[in-house]
């Protein structure tokens, strides 16, 4: 999978969030997006997911313009801002319900992905009883479990203990090895430096490659 961003700009009323963004993302790589809070990282992620219409420019997924075709990107999963699940259900029930939308994976695959992130023991606990870090891990499982081609993470390590951060890094590196395209935004420099092959910085509406 390849994502090509051309002359992308986004304005909300009179406020310009992003301007003239030109980037190329390829499968088999991890890309880091850094920038201070409020710099436009999340807006950029939402544009990549097709949740916002660009004010100008195009986003191509393997040469398909998701905006002019009025579609959401194919084989893409994302965790943007904070994970959203039903508090009344357990972590496993939430994932099972989500997986039922496309019906591509079975319970075994969900359990297997939960195991990878040390969530197996908490699978039957209600989501409302989860700690912040555990909620975040469940959000990451939601992204990984259906084996998508493109994975987009916004601040994925929020609230997660150091031991699991290392596990997540290892998982993402393994997924990269399988040819997946992974984009990770974070305001924590260390998260990105340890993971990304290329790093882009969002500043004043521009996104440039960090030297």
């Amino acid at each position: 999978m390849r994502i090509k961003v051309e002359n992308l700009a986004k304005k909300f009323q009179d406020q310009t969030i992003l301007r003239n963004v030109n980037l190329d993302f390829n499968g088999g790589h991890i890309y880091g997006i850094v920038g201070r809070n409020g710099s436009g990282k999340s807006v950029f992620m939402k544009l990549l997911c097709g949740f916002y219409k660009p004010t100008e420019g195009t986003i191509l997924y393997d040469s398909v313009d998701i905006n002019s075709n009025n579609v959401f990107p194919p084989s893409t999963r994302a965790l943007i801002e904070k994970p959203t699940f039903l508090p009344e259900l357990s972590g496993f029930e939430n994932l099972k319900l989500l997986a039922s939308i496309q019906n591509k994976i079975d319970d075994e695959k969900i359990i297997e992905t939960m195991r990878k992130l040390n969530l197996y023991d908490e699978r039957n606990k209600k989501y409302s009883k989860y700690s912040l870090g555990t909620k975040q891990k469940l959000g990451i499982v939601q992204v990984l479990m259906e084996n998508p081609e493109v994975m987009i993470f916004d601040e994925p390590m929020n609230g997660i203990e150091n031991e699991t951060v290392k596990i997540i890094r290892d998982i993402l590196i393994t997924e990269k090895g399988k040819g997946k395209l992974i984009i990770v935004a974070s305001h924590i420099k260390e998260d990105i430096d340890n993971l990304a092959d290329e790093v882009f910085e969002v500043d004043n509406g521009y996104i440039n490659k960090r030297k």
């Binding site: 997911c49 097709g50 949740f51 009025n70 579609v71 959401f72 990107p73 893409t76 999963r77 994302a78 965790l79 943007i80 959203t84 699940f85 989500l98 939308i101 496309q102 939601q142």
Partner: peptide, 13 residues
């Protein structure tokens, strides 16, 4: 308003 990525990356509009 929330949890859009759970739904809209899995199902068409």
């Amino acid at each position: 308003s929330s949890g859009s990525e759970n739904v809209f990356l899995r199902v068409s509009k």
